[in-house]
């Protein structure tokens, strides 16, 4: 029976170690902690062009992540891109006339949605649509414009 005890201790240790590993992956490595616990509310916005924006891209206010993109679809009426976002419930005092723009972190980084707060007394409520949006800067368009200007000035 002594051998069995040794085996049991080792198996216990084994399970304990894997649980610790799982916990560290959940909380340190992945976004598990933001997944379930915190309540969010949903808003949406229409963009002319979302560039390379992807689902799960962060929504940032002054560089701080306050929410995530939950879905991207085409609005059937306006043929614009509708971006759905979930904002953390703790940021429920955002003015209703805030504006959104799609920005890039660094020259080659991922794209994210930046929120610029407005001045209205009224605050954003779940299901609201943010009116003022600025599309992603598309590098090709920018170069195109630059070339046009270059040829104009000649």
């Amino acid at each position: 029976m002594k051998k069995q005890t040794k085996i049991e201790i080792w198996v216990g240790l084994f399970v304990l170690m894997s649980l610790m590993a799982l916990a560290s992956i959940a909380f340190q490595v992945s976004n598990f902690s933001e997944w379930k616990e915190r309540p969010t509310y949903r808003v949406s916005a229409l963009f002319d062009n979302i560039g390379g924006l992807k689902v799960r891209a962060p929504l940032k206010l002054s560089g701080v992540v306050i929410g995530r993109v939950t879905g991207i679809e085409i609005d059937p009426v306006s043929f614009k891109a509708r971006v759905n976002m979930a904002i953390d419930q703790s940021f429920n005092q955002l003015p209703v006339d805030s504006s959104l723009s799609i920005l890039t972190s660094g020259l080659l980084g991922d794209q994210y949605v930046g929120l610029e707060p407005g001045g209205d007394e009224e605050v954003l409520k779940p299901g609201d649509e943010i009116e003022m949006t600025q599309s992603a800067i598309v590098l090709e368009d920018l170069i195109g414009q630059f070339l046009v200007k270059l040829s104009d000035s000649e």
């Binding site: 992956i25 959940a26 340190q28 490595v29 992945s30 976004n31 598990f32 997944w35 799960r56 962060p58 992540v65």
Partner: peptide, 15 residues
């Protein structure tokens, strides 16, 4: 290092 990781690694999709 850590913040890039947590923002990129998704619990459901990756883990």
């Amino acid at each position: 290092f850590w913040s890039q990781m947590t923002s990129q690694v998704d619990w459901n999709e990756d883990v």
